[in-house]
Simulated assay, not measured.
Amino acid sequence: MLLFLGGTPAYAHTALQNATPGPGAKVAPGADVVSLTFGRLKSGTTPKINLTGPDGTAVPVGQPVVADDSVTCAAVTPLRAGVNTLTYTVTSADGDTQSNAFQFEVADGAEAVAVPSACRGLSLPAPYVGAASAKSGTILGLSRTAALAVLAGAALVIVGAVILGVRMLRGARTTGRRKATV
């Protein structure tokens, strides 16, 4: 009897229903907001969004904001031409976490992407540029190896200055004692 009633399948996990820019999309440079729409997300959780640019470095992404329990919006630094990879991790209403990724292309001459209506009017935190540097293996604009070498050199200079200062101080005390005993 139940076979004849039909029904809809039960989904234990939320799935990506829509994205701006979406998987495989081709959009104009300059987009500064990404949006992901899912089934209902778990209240109180914050999805994670990472974006890798065409050159393999991290693109700064602001803290995602959830609208309408299903739409995740995040500010990003304006997108440059090339293939970008967006990675996300969300927690569905039933508490299960899932991660996935997709690519889209930013190309001159492509159609500009509009900010999705669910994201308009939201106060989206600005992308943190320092986070991209940490993720891309750079520190203060230097490669990780060069930055560590500079830090090690600075530490050696400081230690050398402290040792020199202590020796000079001890030398001054010793000289003062000799003059007093003569």
Score class of each variant (00 low, 15 high):
2 L>W: 08
5 L>F: 08
6 G>H: 08
8 T>N: 14
8 T>V: 15
11 Y>W: 14
11 Y>E: 15
18 N>Q: 11
23 P>H: 05
25 A>H: 04
25 A>C: 07
28 A>N: 09
30 G>H: 10
33 V>E: 00
40 R>Q: 15
41 L>Y: 00
49 I>P: 08
49 I>M: 03
52 T>Y: 03
53 G>V: 04
55 D>R: 00
55 D>H: 00
56 G>S: 13
56 G>C: 04
56 G>P: 06
59 V>Y: 04
60 P>G: 04
61 V>Q: 00
62 G>S: 07
62 G>W: 02
63 Q>D: 10
64 P>H: 02
67 A>T: 02
70 S>M: 11
75 A>Y: 02
75 A>F: 03
76 V>S: 00
77 T>Q: 09
78 P>V: 04
81 A>Y: 02
83 V>H: 06
83 V>T: 15
86 L>Q: 02
87 T>S: 15
90 V>E: 06
90 V>K: 00
93 A>D: 11
94 D>I: 14
95 G>L: 12
96 D>H: 12
100 N>T: 01
101 A>H: 15
102 F>H: 01
106 V>R: 09
107 A>C: 04
109 G>K: 06
111 E>R: 11
114 A>F: 04
116 P>N: 07
116 P>I: 01
117 S>A: 15
117 S>F: 07
118 A>Q: 01
120 R>P: 00
120 R>F: 01
121 G>C: 01
122 L>E: 04
124 L>V: 00
126 A>V: 09
130 G>Q: 05
131 A>S: 11
132 A>G: 14
133 S>N: 14
135 K>T: 07
141 G>Y: 03
142 L>Y: 10
143 S>E: 12
144 R>T: 01
145 T>W: 12
146 A>R: 14
148 L>A: 13
153 G>I: 10
156 L>W: 13
156 L>Q: 10
163 I>V: 13
164 L>T: 14
166 V>K: 09
166 V>P: 02
167 R>V: 09
170 R>L: 13
172 A>I: 10
173 R>V: 09
173 R>M: 05
176 G>S: 13
178 R>N: 10
182 V>S: 13
